Amino acid sequence: MSDASPRPEPFTPHTDPAVLEDLRTRLRATRWPDAPEDAGWSLGTDIAYLRELIAYWADGFDWPAQEAALARLPRFRVPLGGLGIHFVHARAVAPTGPVLPLILSHGWPDSFWRYTKVVPLLTDPGAHGADPADAFDVVVPDMPGFGYSDRPAGPLLDTIAVAGLWAELMSVLGYERFGAAGGDMGSHVSRYLALEHPERVVAVHRTDAGLPVFTGDPAELTPEERAWFESVAVWGRAEGAYGAMQSTKPQTAAVGLTDSPAGLAAWIVEKLRSWSDCDGDIERAFTKDEILTNVTLYWLTGTIGSSMRVYNANAAIPAEQRTRRVEVPSGFSIFRGDVVRPPRAWLDRTTNAVRVTEPPRGGHFAPFEEPELYAEEVRAFFRPFRAAATAAAAASG
């Protein structure tokens, strides 16, 4: 790293108690909507469950304890592209073979929070019953406008631009060859890293393939692919209202969600429930403390509006970018409880898919829902690429 390179600085936030007292005051003053009897989750967030959650947030949730737990991860901020970027950088512990750098990209509605459980499993596999030779150096950045990264004040950044920032971040950290992995919006970031920097990304692992975009002759699609397209359309009509709002008018929703912690929780909790492998019971996938840690990160950083604007930026990505085939070796772990699960034919059409598995548990937030299972999927996928990547890095160095 040259003297002119950006220098990461250690980062440990501490929340002013007055900010937490303001939050509790707002929670206790929530103006509740009515709801039809027995509506449950059928019309969106279950108001009865939300009341229970908000009461706990106001008078039971211990944010300082959660903040201290997050502080046990080695966290930094660095200036990139005119923005301060927050990231976790955890190095391999007691490796017995070549160490592969790995950048993990999160999605919405989350942040580095998505990967907090898997960082120790990937950096120190030997301490968790796995092979120490599978250790990674792990980098988990917050996308601009998410978590503790800066909120862009100028032009909106799409996932292509974020991939460019992550390539720069890995250079700043001294990693010229690395693996990339992600889910949700982070799946797109990882894909564009592989497309724009194929000489640097040794392999890419994803937990989904996103919503399908196809500009060819529909007759070319397999029956399996056509059925999947139809199921995605059905899902979009039932579940896609949030995406339409965030892609077109994110600022309208941002006003209420930034002002009302109860509204913010409703917006996020409904997605945590419907996208996770919980069979309708959100607390089978997340405890109240886990849910509220994610939501409180959004509240304290004021990033719900900026996070939603990425949808608007991504909506402008042209089809020719969305349909480029990824030639970098790609792996997919399509977890049982995830949404819009793609068929193998689509993965082969759009990527150089060298490994596709279907883990029996876990949903859209698999690294948090099933961290051990997710970590094993990542270790197994990258194992064949580890030595080649580190040898190439040594030769180029």
Rank of each mutant, 00 (worst) to 15 (best):
V339L: 13
P8G: 00
D34N: 08
G280S: 05
E67R: 14
G174R: 08
E283I: 01
R51H: 15
E176H: 15
S111W: 05
G179F: 07
N352W: 08
A194K: 10
F61C: 07
P33R: 00
E225F: 07
T350W: 04
F332A: 04
V19D: 11
W275T: 04
A313E: 08
W41P: 02
A92N: 12
H89K: 03
G179T: 01
T12H: 13
P79I: 06
T323N: 04
A313Y: 12
P74Y: 02
A388W: 05
H364M: 14
R200C: 10
N352I: 04
T15S: 10
V140H: 06
P120H: 12
V189D: 02
L373N: 04
M245Q: 13
A71E: 13
G216L: 13
H89V: 08
E376S: 14
N312Y: 10
G145F: 09
D184S: 04
A391T: 06
D348W: 05
K117N: 02
L121W: 08
P384C: 10
V202L: 04
A65N: 01
F332K: 06
F385M: 06
W32Y: 09
E37W: 13
W235H: 15
S306Q: 11
G256S: 14
A315Q: 14
F368T: 05
L83P: 07
F136K: 09
V234C: 01
V340K: 14
V139C: 03
R206Y: 00
W57A: 12
P33N: 01
F76V: 07
I282W: 14
T252C: 01
F286Y: 15
C278Y: 09
P101T: 06
G240K: 11
P125W: 12
P17Q: 05
V201H: 08
P367K: 12
D217V: 11
L221N: 05
L50G: 06
W235L: 03
R273S: 05
A90C: 11
T293E: 11
A387G: 02
R341T: 10
G129A: 08
E372M: 03
I85R: 05
